[in-house]
Amino acid sequence: GGVGMPSGSYVSPKTVWLPAMKAKGLEISGTFARRSGVIQMDLSLTNKAMSVMVDFAIQFNKNSFGLAPAGPLQILTPLSPNQTIDVSLPLSTVGPIMKMEPLNNLQFTHRQIHVHATQELNATFENTQRDRGNCQYPLSLLFVEDGKMDRQVFLATWKDIPSENESQFQIKDIHLNSDAATNKLQGINIFTIAKRTVEGQDMLYQSVKLTNGIWVLAELRMQTVNPNYMLSVKCRAPEVSQFVYQCYELVLRN
């Protein structure tokens, strides 16, 4: 994490979501973070056009978990040519829902107004530009802070979820012991409920709760002599399992 972030909360570097070529000179790059329960979209807007840009706005298309801006984009000053502005947009999860492919895909529409100056007429004119961008968010954005399942409920739920709903993933070449892994995972609200050591393997039983109430149960297996972890994920909505696995990969490697 960076300055001022709780330890363990990894934020991916910004990537370009809307290249300047596709948006008449406006480049949008961004990343996502969950900070003390608040979901944020961190954006950088760069003006690569000759005109000044003003009056920025963003809308989201329907998406799998109802992500939506919780307020307007707070960009109060014009963006001059070659200028970049950084802004954090808080998000809610009460927007309209439509299952996306992939599940964590987010399409957005961005609008800005280009202000052109004409020396000949000694005047300015404006034209509105709308562009569609696309990005994907880590599912950990939706892992809530009260995702530590009651231990008895965990055991009953684990038994109750059929084995067809279990997915297994190998996480290769991780050199962390189980305590370090537990701490890192807790930083993104993956909670360890129990730990057992059987035949030289540490087995961690963990739970995650998504903003929409879906619970995910996991078993993380590690051996001191083997840097490859084995992750088993059980969920009543098994389509989320591979996206939960991606979060394990991301946080354990960073």
């Binding site: 055991l155 057992r196 059987v198």
Partner: peptide, 20 residues
Amino acid sequence: EMDGALEEAFSRLAESRTNP
């Protein structure tokens, strides 16, 4: 007593997963 039973249940789960 309840805690002991829960601890035991987790141990059984881990055992069953290692030696199915």
